[in-house]
Design a protein around this nucleic acid. Structure first.
Length: 222
DNA sequence: GCGACAG
DNA sequence: ATCTTGTCGC
């Protein structure tokens, strides 16, 4: 099962949160996962009203069949206000609880947000990856950085740049739809991350991992 | 000073 | 994130 390796005290101020990110950032590992990726977890959080009550949902999919083999739902509250760049401090506590409830340990965490494509190179995917030591990637719906539009065909991509540095890719998962923004979280390569996202998104813009987690969270909110 | 800013 | 009708496409 998944264990949280380095439970740090949760910050109260933005300055504390930034300090935690800078302390944990060196722990990110960039080597790829040598094992075959058979299962992938989707993580998502649904909110009631503008914020406050939330539901963290995790689904584990068999990558070959895209069927859900495990899931967990945790009701909680936002532990931090929404601040771009400090997103993990809002959602990570409930997501970590949900991950701890899984009976199947996934081979990778597919996070709804960024990994290295982050002002301090430590987005939600990096944070969850380092805390659990489970390989992770970030798949965002909005870019943090600049990119040229990739070709229209499925699988086309362009580099995503932030501060004159390549931090991820804009990846077209379906023709005629806006690309998704893929970045590495922990113990995963960018090439493998994009391959995985394309396998997880055969029909829709977003990977099935995030879609199933999103559906699960929304239904639990009612 | 003004705009931008993961979910 | 969430509030929301109709509409286009498979």
């Amino acid at each position: 099962m998944i264990r949280v390796r380095d439970p740090h005290p949760w910050p109260t101020t933005e300055a504390e949160a930034v300090a935690i990110q800078e302390r944990l950032r060196p722990l990110v590992r960039f080597d790829g996962e040598p094992r075959e990726i058979r299962t992938a977890a989707g993580l998502d959080v649904a909110y009631r009203d503008e914020s406050d009550e939330l539901v963290a949902a995790v689904t584990v999919l068999d990558v070959a069949t895209l069927s859900v083999v495990d899931s967990a739902v945790v009701r909680g509250k936002a532990e931090f206000p929404y601040v771009p760049g400090l997103f993990a401090f809002r959602e990570a506590p409930s997501l970590l609880q949900a991950l701890a409830e899984l009976s199947v340990e996934p081979d990778v965490l597919v996070c709804d947000g960024q990994g290295l494509a982050h002002p301090r190179r430590f987005g939600l995917a990096c944070h969850l990856g380092v805390l659990t030591d489970v390989p992770s990637i970030g798949v965002g719906k909005t870019a943090m950085g600049h990119y040229e539009p990739p070709g229209e065909e499925r699988g086309a991509w362009t580099p995503l740049r932030l501060d004159d540095e390549v931090v991820g890719r804009a990846l077209r998962t379906q023709r005629g739809v806006k690309p998704v923004f893929v970045s590495v979280g922990h113990r995963f390569t960018l090439d493998a991350a994009c391959d995985l996202v394309l396998r997880l998104a055969p029909k829709y813009r977003l990977p099935e991992t995030t879609r199933t987690a999103d559906h699960l969270g929304r239904s639990a909110l009612r």
